[in-house]
Nucleic acid binder design. Structure first.
Lengths: 394, 394
DNA sequence: CTGAAAGCGCTAACAA
DNA sequence: TTGTTAGCGCTTTCAG
């Protein structure tokens, strides 16, 4: 067969005679441009080929400026919008980035419930958009139901959306789907150190150990003798690392650990745990709470037991909420700077997608910020602010 | 030409002899499955046709259960993931819903900065996922720069993502892109009454007039004689409608309006405006603040002027933040119930996309909730809670 | 510098 | 019931 014959064989059916019966072949398929102009219409209207249209609109080929602007004008006039689906199919790039949160405990989808996530998502979205990507919010990939079976929440949206990569917040080491995503070659970057068995392309995290040490030192400097911890029961990295750092610190300074754990997703349980902590016979004279609402809970509990803050009890909690500036008294908070995390994680992901930067896994540690307020300042004590640590990028 | 000949002409090139030179035709195109299994691989491995694979996986045709499960098993074994892009191109449905916020004033992208948006987005995402759609967060479509030119923020993400429809929060009547979206046939549903010139398919909104009237009545019942308003300078519907309702109420009860406007996106301006309002010679004895941080700002200003809340000054502000339950004193807030709004707006949009429900424009008015706390309860006055209004659906 | 055509992976219409 | 094939709209290679 000659090359000409090959072309013959593949020729557009429109060029061959009609099938017997003379009727026109019906257009099939549901995606037919619904009255809107396609690239062919533009090409016809502009008197050029579709290649030229594509090149002109994407700034690709080396066309005369006149042609380019003419095509652009015609496209504009016809209200031509290129089909994102077709482009994605052809190029293999969708311009879409997934964002998913392995939520605390069994809570279904609490996403922006806490100020942390709100700010993190805001920054991530903004950064993605600035680099020409859009963020798709996706459900936690999978969860273990009773009996260890994987429970999907509703239809499998994951496989229905073409992603160039995805951000996983707080990846659980048990999640089989995250592992599968990575293995299938999709770039995955995580917020929070993943377990070593999850070979994500990069991760970003705060230095939680240093943050906890900084807080405990700060409390000790302000006169605390016995520092308690309010922590969670879940196995995410944040909870685990922070709790370990606390225990380690206690061991180092020779203090007996005093802590209460509760399921972090349940606000009522938090209030109860705060109460329990202050009801103990070995009541702490300072408490650090790992989760956002701990501050108010501890304040309420202190009030119930007639403890004055900061005179009888020093208080710090980890929170992004500005409302702690206006409680009575204002409460010292640790900010994880979620905005920076969101930005960093998306930058890293897009770098991986676009193949710029190192191909080795990247770990990026972001500084935290201790915002010292009345609740942790014992009268007559000097104010100490941990200086922001320099981000260490490997 | 016979039907057989037609098929001949269109036959798969793989079935025809190689071109001269004997080399295989090079695969072109960038989207080539990167080592991963395609539907053809599954078909080959399972010993069936690709149609059967497609039908088996999508639960479409009427195949024997044996075939179906066999195909599923093979697909699973090969790690087959269907290409969302190809499916979208073919079916014309992407399963993607856009969500965009026309941000306040000139602020670039403040999205989840306020608890309202956080909760609204959370609910919208959750609802979308439950119905098999994912949410894509997109930038405000366009803004007027100096001189009236349309300013795009970064690359045009809008035209690069295949949407089945979109939610527009607080659509500005000047935005040309929203109008274009509607005109191009994309289903658009808005949170907030759109201007009549924007023919969206449906909208959801609170009854802001009724909410403002309810608050003013509540304050009056608690002894307020001169009620002030802290409002914004922007032209979005919420600000406009609320302010008008306030002025109308004043006219009706014969009170001279006392209000300050400020650019709502600027928190400092809010604090200054709160101060200004309480510094006036005709100082109000009650204030309603339209925006989230007004409560704390007004509280701080009241403290500066030595005004006791609620004895000297009654306070209400519109906010979704739970932190107002723990301020000193706790502040009465109006909740717009953003979760319900987010859910409703997505349900409506998906109904339109899927062609269920009425085709006429739908207006859905959602109730608000006044959470009465100490700041608006004058001692000795009875507590009054506006009963939640029944949602009126046309 | 421009145009023809192949084909991305899938689904739906039709043929067998 | 299963298989064959056209083609969704676009980008890209390659020939002219």
């Amino acid at each position: 067969m000659t090359a000409a014959e090959k072309h013959q064989a593949g020729r557009n059916p429109a060029a061959v005679p009609q099938p017997p019966g003379g009727r026109c072949p019906q257009p099939r398929g549901g995606g037919r441009l619904n009255g809107r102009a396609g690239i062919r219409d533009v090409a016809a209207a502009a008197g050029v080929s579709i290649t030229t249209v594509s090149d002109a609109l994407n700034g690709k080929g080396r066309l005369p400026d006149a042609t380019r602007s003419h095509v652009r004008e015609v496209a504009e006039r016809l209200g031509y919008r290129p089909s994102a689906a077709a482009r994605t199919l052809r190029t293999g790039k969708s311009g879409l980035i997934g964002l998913t949160v392995t939520t605390y405990g069994e809570e279904p989808f609490t996403f922006t419930e806490y100020a942390y996530f709100a700010e993190m998502v805001r920054a991530a979205t903004s950064t993605a958009l600035a680099r020409g990507y859009a963020l798709v919010i996706l459900p936690a990939p999978a969860r273990r139901g009773p009996g260890g079976t994987v429970v999907a929440l509703g239809p499998d949206v994951w496989s229905n959306v073409a992603l160039d990569g995805t951000v996983v917040v707080d990846p659980s080491d048990q999640d089989p789907v995250v592992g599968e995503l990575v293995r299938s070659g999709l770039p995955v970057v995580s917020d929070g150190r993943p377990s070593p068995s999850l070979p994500v392309a990069a991760w970003v995290d705060n230095d939680h150990e240093a943050a906890v040490r900084g807080i405990l030192d700060h409390l000790a400097e302000n006169g605390a003798r016995r520092i308690g911890l309010l922590t969670g029961t879940s196995t995410d990295t944040y909870t685990r690392v922070s709790t370990t750092a606390y225990l380690e610190w206690c061991r180092r300074v020779g203090q007996e650990p005093v802590y209460e754990r509760y399921p972090a997703h349940d606000p009522c349980a938090g209030a109860v745990a705060a109460d329990r902590l202050l009801a103990r016979p070995d009541r702490p004279d300072a408490v650090y709470g790992l989760f956002d609402p701990n501050g108010t809970d501890l304040l309420a509990a202190a009030r119930r037991y007639g403890l004055r803050v900061p005179e009888d009890l020093l208080l710090v909690c980890c929170s992004e909420s500005t409302s702690y500036a206006t409680t009575a008294p204002p409460i010292t908070t640790l900010s994880l700077k979620p905005g920076r995390i969101g930005t960093a994680v998306v930058q890293l992901l897009i770098d991986v997608i676009e193949g710029v930067g190192p191909t080795r896994p990247v770990q990026q540690v972001m500084p935290t910020e201790l915002i010292v307020r009345t609740s942790s300042r014992r009268a007559g004590r000097p104010v100490t602010v941990s200086p922001p640590r320099v981000p260490a990028t490997e």
